[in-house]
Write a protein that binds this DNA or RNA. Structure first.
Lengths: 223, 223
DNA sequence: TTGCATTTCAAACATTTGTATGAAACTATC
DNA sequence: GATAGTTTCATACAAATGTTTGAAATGCAA
């Protein structure tokens, strides 16, 4: 067993650079310079550049998923095996938002890296992404326990929209700030979480009246 | 004035290739091969590869924005200068969803190109994107007319969430299909539009009770 | 210390990339 | 039909990039 110094130095440097400058702009030579190691070290320790990126992303994804599940489990235990939809959704979107928003200078490298991931999707990451479906199913199951009467379709849409709002807020927080001239405070993370959760939950609990709307009413301006 | 044949052939070929294979995978040589023109033609007619991509995106963006504004105007005229929030939101998200979803084999190249844009953000496009804020302001203004009593902050969030749900649905329709095992029909575009619109509108009209929630209630599982 | 395995290093490699060049082909005007 | 302007073409260029190589250095056990 050898010293992992080089390995970890590369990982740290790569994450830092990707977080700051994006995937497109960072070359292996940038990474090894930042890490103060030899150019060949990346291929020696990781096999290829793509595998380095993949390892970085997998590590962070696992952390994120673990945190989500921890919150979910805690919420279900609190409720005696059944959590409120709000709590389930909060466990789903909370970690993402908490990790990726908030005062810019306080964001961890890991968080900034994950923001990059959500902005610039790159092949090795896209391949991994497709595996998170099993993870999401656990939240669908929890939602099913929360809202026994609901049809699965509604639950899927609710979860999808919750993730959509969270993701887009992370990804486009800058645009929202500009558009609202600062009136929307993207640094107040907990408020954003509640906002996303409440909208998503509302769409679910009102689901039977509203979101199943017949869709034909105003179809005329769709000509 | 010369024949634009080469120019348009390049544009068409590039859009087709980008739509099918993404930006990362398509080289100038691929494009000129597909267009049956010489390698130097791209630089001669467009200046650079980035300018070609930019022109492609600008063209499609203008079309999208024009369509959105047309629907908005029609809705406001119908309502005598004031449209319902639903109608405003429908004008905002309808064109995107209508263009980018629906039966896959019926999607235009333009639509598939715009999907790519939303998945793989690439520098020349990101630069242009920042200009669409003025366009969005027109929708905020219309929403202000629809809901005179509302605070601007709520309107911004409502618009942001509407776009978020639409965008993410386009971008991740495949994941939603997989997750729901086909139970969520991403081909029924009009139904999706109504779904997005109703959720966003609900978050706005109920805004004063729900989306301004104090956010502290369950903050304990956010430790 | 000797010997063996792991790790580091400088250098080179092999491609791929977008772009530039300068001559040839073409087009339209007088 | 000569000429000037435009467009096309084959080819070359230059730079960047991920990867490989083989030798040197290092660590470590016997």
């Amino acid at each position: 067993m050898a010293s992992d110094q080089t390995r970890t130095a590369i990982l740290a440097a790569a994450e830092r650079l990707y977080a700051d400058r994006g995937f497109g702009d960072v070359t292996l030579r940038d990474i090894v310079a930042e890490a103060n190691v030899n150019l060949a070290a990346v291929n020696y320790h990781f096999g290829s550049k793509d595998e380095l990126i993949a390892e970085l992303f997998v590590t962070r994804s696992i952390q994120l998923n673990r945190e989500r599940l921890r919150l979910l489990q805690a919420a279900e235990e609190d409720g005696g095996g059944r959590a409120s939809v709000d709590a389930v959704l909060r466990a789903l979107v909370g970690p993402t938002l908490r990790g990726c928003l908030g005062p810019e200078n306080q964001r961890s490298t890991a968080a900034r890296f994950m923001i990059r991931v959500s902005i610039e999707s790159v092949p090795p990451i896209r391949r991994i992404r497709n595996r998170e479906i099993d993870h999401l199913r656990k939240f669908i199951a929890a939602m099913r326990r929360s809202l026994p009467g609901h049809s699965d379709v509604e639950l899927y849409w609710g979860l999808h929209f919750a993730l959509a709002m969270a993701q887009q807020t992370v990804r486009d927080s800058e645009r929202l700030t500009k558009l609202s001239e600062g009136k929307c405070d993207v640094d107040d993370v907990e408020a954003i979480i509640e906002r996303v959760v409440s909208v998503a939950a509302m769409s679910l609990t009102m689901g039977d009246t509203a979101s199943k709307a017949p869709a034909r009413v105003l179809a005329r301006d769709a000509r």
